[in-house]
Simulated assay, not measured.
Amino acid sequence: MWHQNGLCQENTIPIRRTKKEDVFRASSIRRYGKKTHLSTPNPSSVDPAMLNENGHQHAIAYVEGDKYYGAKATINVWQPSIQQGNEFSLSQLWILGGSFGQDLNSIEAGWQVSPDLYGDNNTRLFTYWTSDAYQATGCYNLLCSGFIQTNNQIAMGASIFPISNYGGSQYDINILDPKEGNWWLQFGNDYVLGYWPSFLFSYLADSASMIEWGGEVVNTEPDGSHTSTQMGSGHFPEEGFGKSSYFKNIQVVDSSNNLKAPRGIGSFTEQSNCYDVQNGNNGDWGTYFYYGGPGKNPNCP
């Protein structure tokens, strides 16, 4: 939407202005622009008792067990409702290396609604990275050094428009993250946005060991109750096209830098009565899945 107010001059890039109100909304200056710990889904650990400890819930598809040099997806864009300002809802791809301990490396890109970070409920394009499981390194967009933007047409953290409507028009974005010495990010078919230098990472210096696609929300409700923050469209996968949110044409990049369909794809969610995921495959959409949900409902109190 920022294109309505003009474009950047040659040899400059768009950087979203940080205001003092943005910093004041953060829990601390040190944590401004950062995710909380344990925000990457771990399909090998399904412990509902952990949900109120870290607050993050997911509905994802994933592959592991090979070397991956990038990933691609077409992501359906929505504007999910957020219950509280310190919660968020996002849809993204994760490129992961290392273990799910303190040495996790993660590169992430997609769309999010985060009132705490942006001060509104707009759906925004974002990136993220960390080399130590969200402890000290990394941040959203350009809020710290790391991601090097080379494109002046697309703004990190800018609002995406138009967005999908329930039972109406559907809109999506293409995200491609291939490795060519560094981890390059492509938006749509025409825009190479920039790159994460390989020296930022230890386990992602050469390749990734896991790729994930899907949704994430934060639940800050106490005492075991559940937030009504939506994931995706806010509707369950079984409602299908035009009603549930989807990822389609998901692919991975092999060692020859070629895109191919993922093999042995799995799915994961902590609480399927709150947010769920259903995989599929056909000639038009390739490998795809529907995902998301309303959060709090009679089966997810």
Rank of each mutant, 00 (worst) to 15 (best):
P301Y: 05
V23P: 14
Q271Y: 09
L125S: 02
Y32K: 04
Q149N: 13
G280H: 08
W129I: 07
V63C: 08
N297W: 08
K260V: 14
T220A: 12
Q278T: 07
H56N: 06
A59T: 07
W111M: 10
V217D: 02
L143Q: 12
E212P: 00
W111P: 03
L259P: 05
M231N: 00
S244C: 15
L259A: 14
S114Y: 10
E212Q: 15
M50T: 14
N282H: 05
M210D: 01
T36D: 10
H235Q: 08
H56T: 07
Y203T: 13
Y203I: 02
I211M: 09
W78G: 02
P162W: 10
G65W: 05
H3K: 03
S209Q: 06
N165F: 09
G167T: 08
Y291D: 04
Q170T: 13
L90F: 14
Q230V: 05
N297K: 05
T12G: 00
F289I: 14
E239S: 15
W94C: 06
Q230I: 05
K72R: 09
G119Q: 00
G70A: 11
A71V: 04
H235W: 10
C300E: 02
A205P: 08
T12R: 10
W129T: 00
Q170F: 14
F161K: 11
D120G: 13
L125Y: 09
E212D: 05
P237A: 03
F147S: 01
Q83P: 07
G234R: 04
G194D: 11
T229K: 07
N182I: 00
N121F: 12
S198G: 05
G293R: 06
L259W: 10
P262W: 01
I148P: 03
K67T: 07
E180W: 14
R30G: 09
P41K: 02
Y68G: 03
L185D: 02
A261W: 08
M231G: 11
Q153T: 12
A205Y: 06
S267G: 01
W184F: 12
S256A: 15
L104T: 04
W111V: 01
M231H: 09
E53V: 12
G181D: 08
G85W: 14
P298F: 11
R25K: 00
Q9S: 11
N165M: 13
V113K: 01
K243P: 09
P301Q: 01
Q278M: 03
L200V: 01
N141W: 07
M210C: 10
M210A: 04
M1S: 13
T269M: 04
G101A: 15
S255V: 14
G194K: 07
G168S: 07
Y166K: 14
G97E: 00
Y32W: 04
A26W: 00
P162N: 02
T227G: 13
S209H: 15
S27I: 06
N42T: 01
P237L: 03
G110W: 06
L117H: 10
P115M: 10
I173H: 12
